[in-house]
């Protein structure tokens, strides 16, 4: 890249927004994929990749994706927990598939509507 103009500063800033937001730990939504041995065996890695792809495709800059250990309900894996800033409690989604991910992100992350047929319960186990 050669000489830049003043307008380019904003473009560079925009392009790196997600990267910088993540490094500052700032996010509106936090998606936590449970990746204990049970979760991984049930396909949690594919779920994590699917979540990342969906976030990327929608160009979302305020979603933190993280992973934690087994949630204790191994029969319902793969599982993930979604926390949205301002919502009363985190929501746990169970028996996930990549198709369900698309729907959950569209409905819950973007529109704030819990996808009831995939949800187990409100509330989260302590992750630390």
């Amino acid at each position: 890249m050669g000489k830049i103009a003043i307008e380019d500063l904003a473009k560079i800033q925009e392009a790196a927004r997600y990267k910088i937001a993540l490094r500052q730990g700032a996010g509106r939504v936090r998606i936590n994929v449970h990746m204990g041995t049970c979760g991984i065996a049930a396909g949690a890695r594919g779920i994590l990749t699917a979540v990342m792809k969906e976030i990327e495709a929608r160009n979302l800059h305020d979603v933190i994706i993280t992973n934690s250990g087994c949630a204790g309900l191994c029969s319902q894996e793969p599982m993930m927990t979604i926390e949205v800033l301002g919502e009363p409690a985190p929501v746990k989604y169970v028996l996930l598939t990549p198709e369900k991910i698309t729907k959950i992100i569209d409905m819950h992350v973007l529109k704030g509507q819990v996808v009831k047929e995939c949800a187990l319960a409100l509330g989260s186990e302590r992750t630390r």
């Binding site: 990267k19 993540l22 490094r23 994590l48 990342m52 976030i55 990327e56 994706i65």
Partner: peptide
Amino acid sequence: MAYRTYLMV
């Protein structure tokens, strides 16, 4: 794809 985690060493 964007990274989900950064390790700031």
